[in-house]
Amino acid sequence: MASKLTAVSDTGPVIHLWEVGCLKAFKVCGRLFVPTAVESELGKKGGAKRVPGLKVVGLTRKEKDLSAYVSLKYGLGMGESEAITLCKSRKIKMFFTDDLGARLVAERENIEAHGSVGILLRAFREGILGEEEAIKALDGLAGKSTLFITYPLVEEAIRAVKKYSRQTL
């Protein structure tokens, strides 16, 4: 299924999906952007280049000022505030983050926000990941990634995957 989803991501989902060996889940996006602050943060973890189709976008002077304001106002890191600013100024309605604070700010700004779990499930639904692969990655989020998530929540996501599979058989 060809995806037309356009999104901006901050550092969290890229790192967490890399940690579970599932960066290909980002193929749910037709276009995926990260701002330069996120690229810098990812530099330490092997870089943005690992993500299929990811494009790094530099912010304009005006956008940088807005990002600094967002960061100060909501107490967000530069990666998150640049990503939210990019969504706002370029009218991109989808934001990927695993940061609860950033997620709440995005929703307040009318930007839809989803995290690693959502991206994995979307990739499964679109056939980018098989059922077993998706379950293994979800399990890995709790077991071997640095994402803050509890096992009961991962189990809920895994149950949802199995239910979806049964429904679509």
């Binding site: 609860l100 997620r103 839809e112 989803h114 995290g115 779990v117 959502g118 991206i119 994995l120 499930l121 979307r122 499964f124 639904r125 803050f148 998530i149 509890t150 929540l153 809920e156 996501a157 949802a160 995957v161 979806y164």
Partner: peptide, 20 residues
């Protein structure tokens, strides 16, 4: 309340991921 907030976020992710 972090876990409760997280739970809410994950539920939204499941809904969007599979049915959104």
């Amino acid at each position: 309340m972090r876990v409760e907030l997280l739970e809410e976020a994950i539920k939204k992710d499941i809904e969007w991921g599979l049915y959104g």
